[in-house]
Each structure stands twice: as structure tokens, then as C-alpha cells.
């Protein structure tokens, strides 16, 4: 049962990955990526990493996907005319396909979870079933991997600052063409036309 489920999820992951690469529109690519993440989460569950599976769903399928979708919608990359042109199915048919595949994915991951539960209950495996036991991971993170952990927190802080700087609306039209040192003077007040600083 678990083996068959693994091969189904693996095939699904590969098919969705092909969808990521082949999609004509970024929206479909990102949605296929979501499918790959779901399949991989199911595989992690089956392989004995329930915490990693949950992290995969929360961080990847939750946070990163939402980020991608936000950007696609902010930039208005998925225009409706192209959507109509490239899709073979009617709108309701497409909705059915999307809803059906979402339901199938959720069902597969649920099956994987149920399967892991059954394995737990049957006591088929030795006491330490989960390979990513949380207390073990936490102890390791705060002892042997202390330095990488702190580096990771620094990385996140740096990322946060970098993203704010990058995404902030620039005052000048072309941020790459501004002379060095000119940026510091463009603080908050609007730039007056023709004024030499």
C-alpha cells in the first residue's frame, strides 16, 4: 500500500514538475509547482519525516506559493485573453479539472497520513518511527548546529532588509542610472525638477 502510494506520488511529482517547465503562463507554472510540493510532502510522510512534510506544506505550499501568486497578480501577468486562447476546455471544465486535481492531491496526502498512522498503530516499526523527531532536531539545532542556526537567523534578517530596499518605490525614475552618492540626498522630500544638488 505505502509502496504503491509512493510510486503514485512520485509520478505525480514528476508530471507536475513537467508542468512547471512546460507551462505557457507563469500562473500555471506556479500552480504545477504547488502540486509538486504536495506530492513531495506525501512522499516525506511515507518516508518517515512527518515534521518535514508539515514544514513543506506550511512554508513551501503556504508561504512561498503565496509570495509567487502575489507577485504574479501584482504584475498582472495572467491576462484573461491569453488564458482563453491557450485553454482547450471551457471555463467550467477547467474549474472542474482544477478542483478535481486539488481534491485528488489532498486525498493522496491524506492517504499517506492514514498509512503512516496505520504503520504506527501496528507497531511494525521500532520505537523511534519518525526520523525527524522534534526533540532530537531541537536538541541538535541548539547544540551541534548552533552556528548554522544563528547564521540562518542573520540570513533571514538580511533578506528582510534587502527585500524592503528592493521593493520600495524608488524616487528617481531609473535606480540604475542614478549617480553614486545621489541616493543619500533623495531622502523623503520629493525631488524638485531642475534643481542641482
Amino acid at each position: 500500500m505505502a509502496e504503491a502510494l509512493f510510486y503514485v506520488l512520485g509520478a505525480g511529482a514528476v508530471l507536475f514538475a513537467i508542468g512547471v517547465v512546460r507551462a505557457r503562463m507563469p500562473l500555471f507554472s506556479v500552480l504545477s509547482l504547488l502540486g509538486t510540493f504536495f506530492c513531495l510532502a506525501g512522499i516525506y510522510l511515507l518516508a518517515g519525516f512527518p515534521f518535514l512534510a508539515a514544514t513543506q506544506l506550511l512554508v513551501y505550499a503556504g508561504a512561498i506559493m503565496v509570495l509567487f501568486l502575489f507577485v504574479i497578480m501584482l504584475l498582472n501577468l495572467g491576462d484573461a485573453a491569453e488564458l482563453e486562447r491557450h485553454a482547450g476546455l471551457s471555463l467550467s471544465g477547467r474549474r472542474l479539472v482544477v478542483a478535481g486535481s486539488a481534491a485528488a492531491l489532498l486525498g493522496l496526502v491524506g492517504l499517506a497520513a492514514a498509512d503512516v498512522d496505520a504503520v504506527f498503530a501496528a507497531g511494525e516499526l521500532p520505537e523511534e518511527r519518525a526520523l525527524d523527531d522534534l526533540s532530537t532536531l531541537a536538541r541538535l539545532l541548539f547544540s551541534r548546529y548552533m552556528l548554522p542556526f544563528e547564521a540562518a537567523s542573520l540570513l533571514l534578517l538580511a533578506t528582510m532588509v534587502a527585500v524592503i530596499v528592493l521593493a520600495k518605490r524608488q524616487r528617481e525614475k531609473n535606480p540604475f542610472s542614478s549617480a553614486p552618492g545621489a541616493r543619500a540626498q533623495h531622502s523623503e522630500e520629493p525631488v524638485q525638477g531642475g534643481v542641482q544638488r
Binding site: 515534521f51 518535514l52 514544514t55 526520523l131 525527524d132 532530537t136 532536531l137 541538535l140 539545532l141 548546529y145
Partner: peptide, 8 residues
Amino acid sequence: SAGPIFAI
């Protein structure tokens, strides 16, 4: 557990 930690 090194595997899951690296995965994180």
C-alpha cells in the same frame, strides 16, 4: 538527523 536538519 543531519538529513532533516539540512532539509530545514
